[in-house]
Simulated assay, not measured.
Amino acid sequence: MEGMAGQKSSLTWVVNISAFLLVLLWTIPTLGLFVSSFRDRDQISTSGWWQSFSGSEQTGFVRTGTADDQVERDGLYVIEGTALEGTQELTAWGTGARSPAEFAPGDTVEIDPGVNVTVAGDGTYQMTSAQPFEMTRGERIFTTTLSPPSFTTENYGRVLTAGGLGRAFMNTMTVTIPATVIPILIAAFAAYALAWMQFPGRALLTACVVGLLVVPLQVALIPLLRLHNELGIGKGYLGIWLAHTGFGLPLAVYLLRNYMVGLPREVIESARVDGATEFQIFRRIILPLSFPALASFAIFQFLWVWNDLLVATVFLGNTREQLVMTGLLRELMGSRGGEWEILATSAFISIAVPLLVFFAMQKYLVRGLLAGSVKGG
Rank of each mutant, 00 (worst) to 15 (best):
L227Q: 12
P200T: 05
L255H: 03
L227T: 15
V253W: 06
R226C: 09
P288G: 04
L224V: 09
A298Q: 09
Y192K: 11
I222V: 15
I240Q: 04
A193V: 12
E266S: 01
I268L: 01
H244Y: 10
L294S: 08
Y259Q: 05
V267Y: 02
R283C: 11
A252T: 15
L221V: 15
P223F: 05
A295I: 08
L217P: 15
S296A: 12
Y192N: 12
V219D: 07
G234V: 03
I285M: 04
L205T: 06
A295L: 15
I286Q: 05
G236C: 09
Y237N: 15
F199P: 10
F199Q: 05
N229W: 08
F297L: 13
R265A: 00
L217M: 11
V215E: 04
N258Y: 00
P250Y: 03
A276G: 03
L225D: 11
A193N: 13
A203T: 14
F291D: 13
A252R: 08
G236L: 06
F297D: 14
L255M: 14
I240M: 04
F291A: 14
G248N: 10
P200H: 04
L212P: 07
H228Y: 14
A293M: 08
V210F: 03
V209T: 09
N229Y: 09
L204N: 05
Q198Y: 06
Y254N: 03
I281V: 15
F291T: 15
R272N: 01
Q280P: 13
W241D: 15
L249T: 06
A195M: 00
L263M: 01
M197N: 12
V273F: 02
L231M: 14
I281Y: 01
V267F: 01
P216Y: 02
V215I: 11
E230H: 04
T245M: 10
V267W: 02
L225A: 09
T206E: 14
R226Y: 06
G248Y: 03
Q198K: 07
G236F: 08
I281W: 00
V273N: 01
A220W: 08
C208D: 07
E266H: 01
E278A: 10
L194G: 04
R265W: 00
R202T: 02
L249N: 11
L212A: 12
E266W: 00
A298H: 08
T245I: 07
A276I: 03
L205M: 12
P223G: 06
V253S: 08
V253K: 07
